[in-house]
Design a protein around this nucleic acid. Structure first.
Length: 292
DNA sequence: AGGGATGGTCGGTTTACGTCA
DNA sequence: TTTGACGTAAACCGACCATCC
């Protein structure tokens, strides 16, 4: 049998162009390999065949050598070496092969496969991180969409209210407060956006003025339209340092690749459900901007 | 400078083993 | 007990690259 194994290995090694140092058959008188063979026989339940040189010679042309898993000792040893250095210098390969009675070629292949497994695991981990980032962004986006819808509803309500009250004031012009909003006779500043909201209180006026060019920059109303007609997204750059602050397991390396996915931090603290009776909207803190 | 030999890595694939329903 | 499906480790293959002579 040994000659059969040697023959098979020789064929393979010649085909692969192995150097002579790699072809130092560990299959002969290898304690590790004997253990492997014994284990395999125990598992498969096949009786051990009587060793015979003539039979072995005949076996040279029969079935090739079966694959054997490395023993746990061998794997442990290789794992330890892999932890130290995941690449193999030629001398180190020979040394390791000698120490655990394997062919240098086997050691090389083990390291090769181990690197591949390592990479696969790393990719899986990266995928999980990316996926959870995606889920976070998705749920944030959905929240923002709901928020946006509610804000639009509010605007609609306020518009209707405004129309109604203007109608009332027109029908009773004496009660219409004249010049209460701006008693100065200054020229109107084109950069000012002035919005007047008439409440149910006849004499009360809520007036909100902001510089138009500061609205999009400072507004807490995130989804807005800037005067130049461009839609200013709420995903524009801002302080985003806390977005994934609960994801403390981001390693530095992974973080380098994933920074792009860290969106802006968005808070909803000032948002109160408008269905709760009053407007519930901190209008005095908000620049008032009408959707087109 | 150019080319062949050698040897390494990598991605993908095949093969054989071991486990489990 | 047998068997087939399945996951995984070992081995292979081809392409590519670096180094040496």
């Amino acid at each position: 049998m040994e000659r059969g194994i040697v023959f098979e290995s020789l064929l393979k090694n010649q085909r692969l162009g192995f150097s002579s140092d790699e072809f130092d058959s560990p299959w002969v008188s290898s304690s590790f390999h004997v253990e492997q063979q014994t284990n395999a026989k125990l598992v498969s339940g096949q009786p051990e065949k009587e060793e015979n040189s003539d039979e072995d010679y005949d076996n040279c042309f029969r079935q090739p050598e079966k694959k054997r898993r490395l023993t746990s000792d061998q794997v442990q040893f290789l794992e330890k070496c892999f932890d130290e250095e995941n690449k193999l210098e030629p001398e180190r390969k020979l040394q390791l092969a000698k120490e655990i009675n394997l062919q240098p070629r086997q050691v090389a292949i083990w390291f090769q496969n181990r690197r591949a497994r390592c990479k696969t695991k790393r990719l899986e981990k990266d995928y999980e991180i990316l996926n959870s980032s995606y889920e976070n962004l998705k749920s944030e986006f959905e929240c923002l969409q709901k928020h946006n819808d509610k804000l639009k509803q509010q605007v609609q309500m306020l518009k209707q209210k405004l129309d109604r009250e203007i109608g009332e004031k027109v029908s009773t012009p004496n009660e219409f407060p004249s010049k209460e909003v701006d008693s100065n006779d200054e020229e109107p500043n084109p950069n000012l956006v002035s919005t007047q909201i008439w409440t149910n209180e006849p004499k009360m006026v809520i007036c909100k003025q902001e510089y138009a060019n500061s609205v999009s920059a400072k507004s807490d109303v995130i989804d807005s339209y800037s005067p130049d007609g461009n839609h200013s997204s709420f995903l524009e750059p801002c302080d985003s340092s806390n977005v994934f602050e609960n994801q403390s397991d981001f390693s530095q390396d992974e973080g380098d690749n994933l920074n792009i996915l860290r969106g802006p931090k968005i808070e909803y603290e000032s948002y109160i459900d408008p269905n709760e009776g009053s407007l519930g909207y901190h209008i005095e803190d908000q620049p008032f901007w009408l959707w087109p």
